[in-house]
Amino acid sequence: MKEDRLGKILTVGGAILTAVFCLAPIGVMVLTALAGRPDFLRPEVPLAWTVDHLRAVLTSEAIHFPEYLRNSLLVSAASAVVAVFLASLAAYALTRMSLPGRGALLLLILAVSMFPPVSLVGYLYRIMASIGWINTYPALILPYVAWTLPLSVWILVSYFTRIPRDLDRAGLIDGCSRLQILLKIIFPTAAPGIFATLLLAFIFAFNEFLFALMLTTDYSARTVPVGIALFQGLHGQTPWGEIMAAACLTILPVVLLALFFQRRIVQGLTRGAVKE
């Protein structure tokens, strides 16, 4: 049928366009990281491959890239674990216990997640400065926990709602406390959901920029997005090869997570946003 042919063409064309759109900038990044010169796209420039940029980024002490990456991984992991634990407590209470004002609370959580970060970062800086936490891990972990909580609560509420309440009742009859029920019964049952939420919280914290820019001052706590944004390199000219090498190494963890756990992440994201 003519209609179906048109549909096929649209699908295939759309798929190709989508793939090019999503992957071309990544291609530019990888090629620049590996090319000897950043102007390798010019026809008159010979193409020479090199791993010098990667090596420089990983080994040069003055660039501090490994420190940035370590900071990012530690801060994001810590804030994801704390946020998801706190969110699961809250989600449990919101789905399992009779609480007044439950709907209002969920709305409040949603509203909080829509605040522009810049309208709290200034005061947060003041608070952190007064307790001497500027440029330390806690100065980032605490705001990241707060920042990823709303999303985590929404996703977990949607997962927890689907777990039959009979499980809880059985636990209560066995004399378990609510906390024991959450840890021993709900956590294992909702493990895929918890894992998806952890992944998302990690990625959100890993990608955060403004707090890290304002609450850290040097490599002892600064995270990798800020490191890359301020990257100057050692050799004068904007060192595109090294910047892109650093970019490759930076996105490696998040991209691997995204690819390996594609289904979970998509599920988590849509659970947070779409009521099925």
Binding site: A62, M128, A129, N135, T217, L230, Q232
Partner: peptide, 21 residues
């Protein structure tokens, strides 16, 4: 080491000094 960009140098110094680091 600070960036060559003086604006960024100033920002990071002000943020550190304002916090009393």
């Amino acid at each position: 080491r600070r960036p060559a960009d003086t604006d960024q140098q100033r920002q990071s110094l002000i943020l550190a000094l304002n916090a009393g680091l």
